[in-house]
């Protein structure tokens, strides 16, 4: 398997360059401590516009709030290659030679450092078609399961990831302005013998549901649930949470206690399976995505928590617990 995945930078004559977005994303999950990590590097806006942004974020949740931080610089200051985004405190590389993701983090306060490689151990799924998203579009690719090797350093304590953590990766890109009438719901559920990815685009109020994705991954073929067989219920409640970047949080006081997912149930059926994933939230974090060209803001809520899956696959009863992360954007 090879990745051959690169940034999807706009061509020079693209009239929609100012709404360009590109996003490398990776999650780490540790069953032992229930630790959950988020590592992102992203590009926002026309790469040749000095107002455009490159952002990097690295956070770990262990049930006591989030350790980590976000950095935002001009894209012109970022070190970019087709498969790499490098910032002052973080680098994210997609290697095509060995199907793997390389992440390096050195945060200013040294509370969170990381240096690891996550090798793909599951199939590589690509939804390259531009899906309607507000006035623009979005596409994505994902690797549901990777095996990380390397070091995570939390408050000076070094943790070896080898044979203990598991990882998830996706890459999404497209054209939209933050603050448009857009939103999405995304979840990654990792249990002992299987994992699942749920995603759907929405409008800002989450009253209109767009393209929906629900896939279940285990040993053997992936189970892809058809959109008509997916049932998702999200219960929201006001939450006091950490919000970054702090300057944007200061500007948007109206979103200081947002409604975030407290419990979520996603059910999927197929001819050979019937599964129900029940998520209960613990820590939440709000990324405030301000658009350098559009001027609006969207709010990306990351919620870590526990998940229970029950149901059947073939003749086998399934009942497992695990860790999960849910993203709710509005």
């Amino acid at each position: 398997m090879s990745l051959h995945d690169t940034l999807q930078s706009p061509i020079i004559f693209d009239p929609t360059r100012s709404s360009y977005k590109d996003w490398f994303h990776l999650n780490l999950i540790d069953f032992e401590t229930k630790a959950l990590g988020i590592f992102n590097t992203s590009l926002h806006g026309d790469p040749l516009d000095q107002r455009s942004m490159a952002a990097g974020s690295a956070f770990i949740s262990q049930g006591l709030g989030w350790i980590g931080n976000v950095e935002v610089v001009s894209q012109l200051e970022a070190n970019m290659r087709p498969n790499f985004i490098g910032l002052q405190h973080m680098g994210f590389l997609i290697s095509s030679t060995t199907p793997s993701i390389h992440v390096g983090v050195r945060q200013m306060d040294n509370r969170l450092n990381a240096d690891f490689i996550a090798k793909a151990v599951s199939s590589y799924l690509s939804i390259d078609l531009p899906m309607p998203f507000g006035k623009g579009w979005i596409s994505w690719r994902l690797i549901p399961k990777l095996q990380p090797f390397g070091i995570l350093e939390l408050d000076g304590k070094k943790i070896r990831l080898d044979n203990r953590f598991t990882a998830y990766h996706d890459h999404n890109w497209g054209r939209w302005f933050w603050g448009d009438d857009i939103g999405w719901e995304w979840g990654y559920f990792q249990c002992k013998s299987l994992s699942a990815v749920f995603a759907r685009t929405t409008n800002r109020a989450h009253s209109i549901i767009g393209a929906t994705w629900f896939s279940i991954h285990r040993e053997g073929p992936d189970l892809i649930v058809s959109p008509g067989e997916i049932d998702c219920k999200i219960n929201l409640a006001p939450k006091t949470l950490r919000r970054v970047p702090g300057a944007m949080a200061a500007l948007r006081q109206d979103r200081a206690n947002p409604l975030t997912p407290q419990s979520v149930t996603v059910c999927g059926k197929g001819s050979s399976f019937d599964l129900r994933f029940s998520f209960t939230a613990s820590d939440a974090l709000q990324f405030i995505a301000a658009d350098p060209a559009g001027g609006g803001c969207s709010f990306i809520h990351e919620t870590s928590g526990n998940v229970i899956v029950d149901g059947i696959i073939g003749n086998q009863d399934i009942s497992e617990e695990g860790c999960a992360i849910l993203e709710y954007v509005n």
Partner: peptide, 27 residues
């Protein structure tokens, strides 16, 4: 006035650089 400056910071990388410098010096 504070709100006006914060809003301008979305479009002004120099503001973010000053913020980073401030954090770095204080650290």
């Amino acid at each position: 006035a504070i709100e006006l400056i914060l809003e301008a910071s979305i479009h002004t990388p120099q503001f973010r650089a000053l913020s980073e410098q401030f954090r770095s010096e204080k650290f």
